[in-house]
Write a protein that binds this DNA or RNA. Structure first.
Lengths: 242, 242
DNA sequence: AATAATCCGGTTGTCCGACAATAACAATAT
DNA sequence: ATATTGTTATTGTCGGACAACCGGATTATT
């Protein structure tokens, strides 16, 4: 029996354009920061029309592999944790995940993140955390925006201090998802700020003492506390975020 | 002084098309599974040409919000954990994250996942895990593909059993990143399969006993063991995956 | 009548050519 | 020297065209 033919490659040309350029990026031929040839040039190279090239570019654009700089020219940019986090949290929102799923993840991930942070945070990072806390403390008590920002920024700095882009992206996507909704809660919970400040203080102390268990413990309490705010504010945790 | 004019909205039309449709999806006007109007119809509705509409569609396509079904028609699909995980791990790879970052995240997340699993896994899920393990045990010892598949599938089923789409997506993206490279390692480590089977056995026992600490403990050992395989195989953990 | 081959209309994928809008750059005027 | 005004290259959008493809209706075959 003759060998069956291999299924032949049938993908739209715009997809091939996309994959070809992506390939060049991942194998390093197109370096980060380099700017893409003009559309006309790409047409010539691939032997397709501008419409087709442009459709391919839209795919790259959405993937975040190219961004337009000044003069509307595209240049290459490898996706960083911010991009991944933003894309992920957007997809989660569109996918209809619920508050409780997000909080569940927060409660699971962040205490461990704090544990790592206690071992790993540089002195400079700890100092930065202290500064974030101080500026939150200095803000007026009724400035809810500042409270939200301070709470999220504290999380953000811990995530960054772990020196791990994978974990950073994951924690950041969680931050993005809660950040928005936290606003409503804090405005309705008068004592929230004090409790946040206290948790942050204990966390910083644990980081300075390099006490991983203590850090994890306080982080768990902190998360739990924020979550309770949602219940007080009568947010239905089984509702989709968004 | 007259009030200054507000900066007027200037985004490319294809972007507006993208956002308009995305909006309709997220607000539920376009329900999951519904099929998009034809390109010609969209042209009419938006008052732009097909080229423009198509560029917008490419953005939606890459976001994963629309997929083409039979007859090449697009229909709406809210992104699920698989999509998010696949997109994230691809971006991580393109972003050049290293093995050690991935393993670091694995070692941090999975023990906690196991802890949750011990509390949360349904009896049916535990049975399924047992089945996965059994089929790995039944596979021939030199069938490295089966060993890799069995190891990854075990992780996968735990992640699914947590009943949390956020955590599922995160754990899945880790699975995707290690799965590929695990192949090389297992082929070079003769005793790997036995150790994997043993860890899986202990994990199942812990799940059945609902012993969270024990589950976390064995998961940590399991992950650590797999990681050691990389060092034995002399994989440079500071190299980018990919 | 049941099945296979054929035709057909609608839709997508690709191409071509054109032009307005824009932004960087060069040339000019004040 | 600075501000203003072309100049030019490139992108954004348009309109139309046509082949490839798909599903379903139609016809032919048994």
């Amino acid at each position: 029996m003759t060998k069956a033919f291999q299924q032949l490659e049938r993908a739209p040309a715009y997809m091939k354009v996309y994959r070809a350029i992506e390939e060049r990026i991942s194998d390093g031929t197109l370096k980060d920061g380099a700017h893409l040839p003009t559309e006309a040039e790409l047409c010539a190279q691939f032997g397709v029309t501008r419409s087709t090239v442009r459709e391919g570019l839209r795919l790259l654009e959405q993937t975040g592999l190219i961004v337009r700089g000044a003069a509307k020219k595209f240049f290459i940019r490898r996706p960083n944790s911010n991009d991944i986090a933003a894309a992920a949290s957007k997809s989660f929102a569109l996918g209809g995940v619920t508050f409780s799923e997000v909080w569940d993840a927060l409660a699971t991930l962040y205490p461990e993140a704090a544990r790592l942070a206690a071992k790993r945070l540089s002195k400079a990072k700890v100092a930065e955390l202290k500064a974030v806390r101080a500026s939150l403390e200095a803000a007026k008590g009724d400035d809810h925006e500042a409270t939200v920002a301070g709470a999220v920024e504290f999380f953000q700095q811990i995530a960054k201090g772990l020196d791990n882009r994978v974990m950073l992206a994951m924690l950041q996507s969680l931050n993005l998802m809660i950040g928005e909704s936290l606003r409503h809660v804090i405005a309705g919970a008068p004592k929230a700020k004090d409790r946040i400040l206290n948790a942050q203080k204990k966390l910083v102390e644990a980081f300075e003492a390099r006490d991983a268990d203590l850090a994890a413990d306080w982080m768990a309490k902190h998360i739990d506390d924020l979550k309770r705010g949602y219940q007080v504010a009568k947010v239905d945790l089984d509702e989709p975020i968004l």
